[in-house]
Amino acid sequence: MDTEFIAEYIPLYIEAAKLMLGIGLIGIVLSLIVGLLIALIQYFKVPILRQIATVYIELSRNTPLLVQLFFLYFGLPKAGIYISSEGCAIIGLCFLGGSYMAEAFRSGIESVEKGQEEAALALGLRKGQIIKYVILPQAISVSIPALCANVIFLIKETSVFSVVALADLMYVAKDLIGLYYKTDEALLMLVVAYLIILLPISILAAVLERSLRYAGFGN
């Protein structure tokens, strides 16, 4: 193991991790927004938009991110649509993540007992108020474990960003293997980098899930 080599190239990994996390964060936030919007469209049974949402969810869930990115980055320019590497990565992640987040929100909303909606109706609340004050606050706390799992899933998915010419962790690792043949060192740093990023998030998710399961409102 060449420790000097490792020390020399750690900054490269840090740069790559920053890039990946930045894009990942934007993509995840957008996924959450898209997911919530779709869950609301389904809840309110908005005509047309609802059908579009169904088609989108099926398309998104049954195709790999890698193929989505190839289409965005290599295919679309041939139709005159040029999107930057970062743009493709964000759009791809959001296209993929939106449907997963939508499913998480949807199952949260469905878990709220029907009586809650009726009780709110009986108080004279309107549909928009019911979702805002009664359904969503309960649904989101149920959805949190699934949302966390999706965040971890999406961060893992960012590992394919190198195909749209982004210098992410995989790109750096492959570069070091190709250029210097320092396979062990490059792979070790790669694994450690992902552990540093993903381990805290997954521990946090586990803690959150446990505290939600055993507690509840009023503890």
Binding site: Q116, A122, L123, F217
Partner: peptide, 19 residues
Amino acid sequence: PKVRQKIGMVFQSYDLFPH
């Protein structure tokens, strides 16, 4: 919603908002 403000209702399963 307007009518229901004049007709209050209480249910078997209470249906208080747990949050």
